[in-house]
Every structure is written in C-alpha cells, then in structure tokens.
Design a protein around this nucleic acid. Structure first.
Lengths: 145, 145
DNA sequence: CGTGCAAAGTTGGATTTCACAACCCACTCG
DNA sequence: CGAGTGGGTTGTGAAATCCAACTTTGCACG
C-alpha cells in the first residue's frame, strides 16, 4: 500500500482504483460492456494494460471473472458489490466533468425513476441534509507516516 | 491530446484530476493544508511531481496560487469553486475505501451539523430518491472515437 | 481441406512518467 | 556570520505505459 503520507481511506481506495484506466474500465462495465475486446475499444486502453488492470481489479474484489462459454473458453467481467458501490462515485465524477471540464452539452445523460434527468447530490446519510463546508467538521484525521 | 475511446465527462474529469497524487493533493487542501511543504509531507508525493501537479491543477482552474507574503515571496494554494466541488467526490471515495479497502476503523471521521457521524449518500438532486441500478436509465451515451 | 474470423489475451521494444536525492535562491533569525 | 525555512528545479535511474504484432482455441464457410 501507500508507503508514506497520511493514513487515509482515500489513499487506500486510490491504491485499488486510482491507476490509469481503472475507472474507465469500471464505467464500461457499469454501462453493461463486460467483454475484453469491447472494454478495450470503448476505453481506448491498450490491451496489455487492460489485461493488467482487470487482473488487479479482480484480485481486489471489485470485479469477478466469469466464464460464459466453455468451447472455446470465453470470459466476462461482472461487478461485485464493491464494484457496484462505485457507481455513485462515477456519477459524481461525471457531473463534475460536465460542469467544469467538458465543453458543450453533457455527452452522457441518465434519467432517474422519478422522471427527471438525473443529477447526483451528495447528502448526509443520517439526516439527508446538504454537505457544505460549514456543515462539516473533522472529528479525527489519520496520522502522517 | 489523444482522444480515443468514448466521449465522456468521466474521462474528461480524469484528464484533470486522475493523475497520480492529484486527488491526495486536493484532500490536503480541503483539509486546510495549503502550503507546498505541508502538502508534500502529508501526501508523500515527491517535490518535483508535486510542483507539476500543482501547476496543472492551477492551469485547469481547480486551484488558485496566491502570494501570502511579499518578502520573501511565499505562496499558498486555495481551492476555486471547481476545487470545492470535488469535496463530495472525495467523501464518497473515502467512504468506499473505509468500507471495502481499509482494515479496521476509519482513519478519518467527520461530523455533520445534524450531530451524527458523517457518511455520504448520493441521491437524485431532483427528487431526493436513492440511486440503485434499477432506478437509473441511460438516455444518451457518448460515441466511441 | 484450407482460409478466414473472433475472443482473449502475450510478447518485445520504444517512449513517457515517476521516484529519490541533491541542489538552488531569497530571505529571516539568533 | 551561519543555520534554517519555504518553494521550488535538476539529474539520474527505475518503473509504467503505449503500440503493433503475435498466439491460442475454436467455429464457419466454400
């Protein structure tokens, strides 16, 4: 894991999903593309790097490699619970990119079951209240090693 | 920049904040550490890489470099609106790391103004409803280049 | 039978990025 | 005057990434 710096779950999370291409692989898988060639084409990652990323994501328990055909052996990558739990992070990242990076209209649009075009909001899970800096207070912070 | 793969705001966002150390730099800045040496110490990034990251984050409009002393010239890095908008993403990433990567108790703990220990939830900004896979539907998706 | 195609990777070599330590400069403090 | 501090830059070697080509297992045609 991270040798130096602050002990922190953000750093730990990035050790798993912070390498180049990892989150784009997850994006494709959560969009429903579960095969090696399709993920390679849709992300633009080179095939050797993609193979390495898929291996580490499987080892980390974010994806599961499943054989969907016996002859010839063919595999697909499906998200585990940990992988599905990344969906909110990807949606927030997409929203931030739409707002502050992408020029023009949003390339990808979702609709929520309420009928509205979907935009994510992050709230307090306990009270449902919004998350501004004034409302947040650090109780404890990891030590720096 | 080589724009292969799907046209997507997640990819665009990662082009800005997806390089190694970028999000840990943002973490420190949002925790209140705004000086070069402090950020270097608390993240563990080497000083040359840190200088490069701070430059690209300033160029991208995520941070602002401000002189806080004239003689000798000393600088601090403060988040712009775009930088502050990354706070929800970091909190979600921390939550995911706490749950699926970090062993033992959470290294960093926040309290919300409602009094409860803070945990983030991502909801639909329009209706406040939760975000499960069944409730989400893709309306449009960026093309693959 | 031989050719072509597809999926899921490996392999080899060039290029780019990263890590680490050392160094620099302008100033302040004792 | 010498040491210390903040904010970096430079040089060198190690590691990661990119790219194209190749491999393997099987099926489908003509």
């Amino acid at each position: 894991m991270t040798a130096r710096g602050r002990v922190c779950s953000i750093a730990n999370a990035l050790a798993v999903i912070g390498e180049r291409w990892s989150l784009l692989v997850l994006r494709e898988i959560l969009l429903g593309e579960r095969r090696f060639d399709g993920i390679a084409r849709n992300t633009g990652a080179s095939r050797d790097i993609l193979a390495a990323r898929l291996r580490t994501l499987v080892e980390a328990g974010v994806l599961e490699k499943r054989r969907y055909e016996e002859h010839p052996p063919r595999y697909e990558y499906v998200p585990t619970e940990a992988g599905r739990a990344l969906h909110p992070i990807l949606l927030n990242l997409m929203e931030w990119g739409d707002r502050y990076v992408t020029d023009g209209p949003a390339p990808t649009v979702w609709r929520h079951s309420c009928g509205a075009e979907f935009h994510p909001a992050t709230v307090c899970a306990h009270c449902g209240g919004s998350v501004t800096e004034e409302q947040m207070q650090v109780v404890r912070v990891g030590p720096v090693r």
